[in-house]
Design a protein around this nucleic acid. Structure first.
Lengths: 248, 248
DNA sequence: CATGTAAGTGTATAATTAACACTAACAAAA
DNA sequence: TTTTGTTAGTGTTAATTATACACTTACATG
């Protein structure tokens, strides 16, 4: 039994996925069909989202969306910004689609935006649950999305970069359970959009006790096999308690 | 002519004020009288805020609040978080007050929170405009505020600290036009809640070209007069363009 | 067994941080 | 006019961290 949806409040989820094989950062988009002539553009693509039910918190709403639309759970969502321009809904077609979709009259909608990080991995059973209207697109191709979602994307990426640099966020969700240091470095590079020196990177990693080497190596690769590592969540949490001594 | 207020959307402004004389960080609160027996507690105190009008953006709404309630303008507001627990309104008295105040039926309200920084300064003419229901309270005394405003305060302070450390935000709004390095250091210490070494602090400041010494010194003080400095906004903006080279 | 490919490793230099104590300049009081 | 109290202002050293840079190793494949 669904509660009443608030017609002026929504949540939207920017879901970043790291494609380790393609070495690409992608986002999950929901495809509608409200502009039939625009198959080549992104006007039909939006982020997974929903109006907020009157008895749920914003976080609950975001997790509900994620679960309903993608089947994903146990992933970490982070609220990063509210978007409330009265003209966010740009086209009549979009408003009509929304009204039909939610069954309520819609005027102005303020959306609370979240981002999440997951890995794109065919071995990952969760992936099967993603519905057919959803698909991954490369983040570099994600211009001109529906509503103000391109702007939301820009802001989400800024927030992610900030969090990655300064808070060491949950970016490890993006990697497989066992990963190589090259994959780790590549993740940083993809998110931050810059390259790092391999040796210096590994020196830093060496100091992080929460990146722990398994005894194990890659196999089946046509080159020197890399050591596999895992991420220790407990040690990570403990390390984050360390005092910040930065200023200015 | 006022537009229609959205009964489920509000903005709230956490306004930090630096009292240079008292060396204290304060916040601006609005006093109501809905719990007559609670003069000693903070249950009657809330942040300046308002429901959002249907034709204004969130930012516009926040600036309107600020101007209507305090007369302040030209100060920088920063959105930092949305708060949407359905049980944010804790007491019937609060709901009744809100309904009477805004003249609409109120159920669940999601608030978008902003913070701002200003200096508390009797020479500052803006200060005269602050209305009688508003007053400054010391940030350390600000427990048990109305609604979830104590929680909002905690989060706003975290956001401010983050922004101060990592972005070098507009904290210079907190200082008088001409300030001493001691005042500057004290501002950092009050916001971040820790102490710094004077010499090391000044060494860092020395590298920031946007803190420029006026030729001038303090006078009338019963000790060696300090050099006065000013803040150069243009140089500051330029310096922020510098590439961030942090990672991990 | 030759080839291609990514893994893995060390050092020297520069830059930054952290810790630490005395003298100088003023107003007010004696 | 001298003394006292108070805050301003200043430099060095040692430790840590950041940066730049090139060759050898281990595997799969042909």
């Amino acid at each position: 039994m669904m509660s009443i949806l608030n017609p002026s409040l929504s949540v939207d989820c920017v879901i970043f996925g790291l494609d380790t094989k393609e070495q690409a950062l992608k986002i999950l988009v929901y495809e509608r069909n409200i502009f039939p002539d625009e198959n080549s553009s992104n006007k039909n693509l939006k982020f997974p989202g929903s109006l907020v039910a009157d008895d749920e918190s914003l976080d609950e709403s975001a997790y509900r969306v994620l679960k309903e639309l993608t089947g994903l759970k146990n992933i970490c969502l982070k609220q990063f910004r509210a978007f409330g321009d009265p003209a966010r809904i740009k086209y009549d077609e979009e408003r009509e689609w929304s009204e039909k979709h939610y069954g309520v009259k819609i005027d102005r909608v303020v959306t609370i935006a979240y981002y999440a990080l997951i890995r794109i991995d065919e071995q990952n059973p969760d992936q099967k649950l993603i519905r057919d209207k959803l698909r991954w697109i490369n983040i570099d191709d994600a211009d001109n999305l529906a509503f103000d979602h391109s702007y939301i994307l820009t802001k989400s990426r800024e927030a992610l970069q900030q969090d990655l640099i300064f808070q060491n966020v949950m970016a490890y969700e993006l990697l497989p359970k066992k990963f190589t240091l090259q994959q780790l470095q590549s993740m940083y590079e993809l998110i931050l959009g810059s390259k790092f020196d391999k040796r210096n990177f590994r020196k830093k990693i060496g100091k992080a006790d929460y990146i722990v080497p398994l005894g194990e190596k890659q196999n089946g690769v046509a080159h020197k096999p890399a050591m596999l590592y895992r991420f220790d969540h407990k040690k990570f949490e403990r390390s984050k308690e360390g005092i910040r001594n930065f200023f200015i």
